[in-house]
């Protein structure tokens, strides 16, 4: 089953993308397209909420680096939120967390 995507605007006005499923090679295209659509809307901030991503591999890491670079190039702040313990370890090991901000969302912001 492919990745699904929900979208929201949080209380502070940031756009929030919520992928649901594994962030692997098959998810790169749909998630990249969704990020592209969101960035085209020129929000001040774009958050990718990782709550429902149980798995991410190197395809996902590269996709997230590209999304961050694309956002930054357009002057848009992009961050990952609600990253689980296993993915946190992966993002530390791959040094993704030295490039892409990882934030804690306030519980009331959901």
């Amino acid at each position: 089953m492919g990745i699904r995507l929900d979208r929201q605007t949080d209380r502070e006005g940031a756009r929030v993308l919520i992928p649901i499923g594994d962030l692997d090679r098959d998810a790169v295209e749909p998630l990249s397209a969704a990020v592209g659509e969101e960035l085209a809307g020129r929000p001040a901030r774009l958050v990718i909420r990782m709550t429902h991503v149980p798995f991410c591999d190197s395809s996902g890491i590269v996709m997230l680096l590209d999304a961050h670079a694309d956002a930054t190039g357009r002057g848009i702040w992009l961050a990952l939120a609600d990253v689980g313990e296993h993915l946190r370890g992966l993002f530390r090991l791959s040094a993704l967390d030295r490039v892409v901000p990882i934030i804690e969302e306030p519980p009331h912001g959901r």
Binding site: S58, V62, L65, D66, L93, S94, R98
Partner: peptide, 17 residues
């Protein structure tokens, strides 16, 4: 390890880790 922000070189590095 791949360089910080590298777009390649993660696969085998991760396998070994």
């Amino acid at each position: 390890a791949p360089e910080v922000g590298s777009r390649r070189g993660y696969g085998l590095w991760l396998m070994r880790q």
